[in-house]
Simulated scan of single mutants.
Amino acid sequence: MANPPTIIVTRPSPMGESLCQELNDLGYRAIHCPLIRFTANTDHSPEQQLALLAQHKLWIFVSKQAVDFALRDLSREQLEQFLGHTLIAVGKATQKALQPYGLSALVPKTPDSEGILALVNQFSLPANYPILLIRGDKGRGLLEQELNGPYQLGALPVYHRIELTAALPPAMQQASAEHPVAWVVTSAQLLELTDKMLATAEIKPEQVAIIGGSERISDLARQKGYTNCYTATDASNAEIIHACLDWRKPASV
């Protein structure tokens, strides 16, 4: 196959390998270049974590990792006691991650903090309603800022994001304005790390296409000078692949 479009996937394992495999199957040249990894946050004991889950009647999961690190050690009996809780998942991939645990969640119209806030506002919850934000140890802070006043907000940081040292993929040596290389970035942190790596290597924005996992990520990329941006409806593999197709169809299609 002659000159298939090249896509660099910055997602951590195992999601990055999964997306690369699907892209390669479609005829792209997908290269995994993970820039972060996830580890469990053990600040809360299992008993403390279970108590927080029980005390709050509305849970907000900000990522698939939030689901897995919060629920993976719970028994089926423990999970069943939460069937009456209201759950919000930031996007479809996070919603899907809840299915193996026997739980379902609502999804906002946009897969971001603004979408979550709009969905919470639709509930017309009483003051001091107990809401639990299940997240990593870093984030925008917008949800805490907006929800902490009107409601009884709890936070359960269940994972750490660890930055990885990665070398610039050799494929970038052939990148040009005529033949840009696409980078899949699904979070603001990944965008920052991607931009730092490209700037250090003196790669120009016109040599790059950004496949953003949300409109917010694409907007941030444009602010950094990347005008060649394509946006997935959410960060699921299927929607990222749709955005890649919008960018460039592979030679096999």
Rank of each mutant, 00 (worst) to 15 (best):
P250L: 08
A54F: 00
E146T: 04
E80W: 04
I88S: 05
V90L: 08
G225V: 10
A209R: 13
L71Q: 06
R161Q: 14
V90D: 04
G154N: 07
L117D: 01
A177C: 09
E215N: 13
C244K: 00
R29V: 01
I217H: 13
P12G: 06
N41V: 04
L245V: 04
L74T: 02
T42K: 15
S236W: 08
V9F: 05
V185G: 12
Q173E: 11
V184Y: 05
P130K: 11
D246G: 00
G149W: 04
G102A: 06
T200D: 09
T233A: 13
F82N: 12
D73Y: 06
V253L: 08
E17P: 05
L83E: 11
G136N: 10
V62K: 05
E239R: 11
K204Y: 10
T42N: 15
L193C: 11
K249L: 07
D195I: 02
I116L: 09
K109Q: 12
S18F: 12
G136R: 04
P34S: 05
Q152H: 15
H85Y: 14
A177E: 12
V62E: 06
T110Q: 09
L26S: 09
G136Y: 03
K96A: 12
I211K: 06
D195M: 02
T86E: 11
L58G: 08
T10S: 12
P12H: 13
D25Y: 05
S218K: 03
D112Y: 06
L245Q: 11
E22W: 00
L23K: 02
I240T: 09
L58K: 01
L117S: 10
V67Q: 00
P34G: 02
L103P: 06
E206R: 14
V67G: 06
T42F: 13
I7W: 02
S113K: 07
Y226M: 11
L52M: 14
L71R: 07
Q65Y: 07
L98H: 03
A182H: 00
I131Q: 10
Y101W: 09
V181W: 00
L125M: 08
M172Q: 00
K109C: 00
Q48D: 15
L83Y: 04
L119S: 10
A97T: 06
K57L: 11
F82Y: 12
S75C: 10
Q55D: 15
A166S: 15
A70L: 07
L79A: 07
H242T: 14
Q21N: 15
E215V: 13
M197T: 09
A175E: 05
A51M: 08
R72E: 09
H85I: 01
I240P: 00
Y129G: 13
T165E: 14
K196W: 02
N3I: 12
I36P: 01
G16P: 05
Q145Y: 06
L143P: 08
I8V: 14
Q55E: 15
A155M: 15
A118T: 15
H56N: 14
K249M: 10
G154Q: 05
K224H: 09
A182K: 01
Q48P: 07
G154I: 12
A232W: 02
H32S: 15
D137W: 00
K224G: 09
N148W: 03
H160K: 05
L164A: 03
A30D: 09
I60A: 12
V185T: 14
T231K: 00
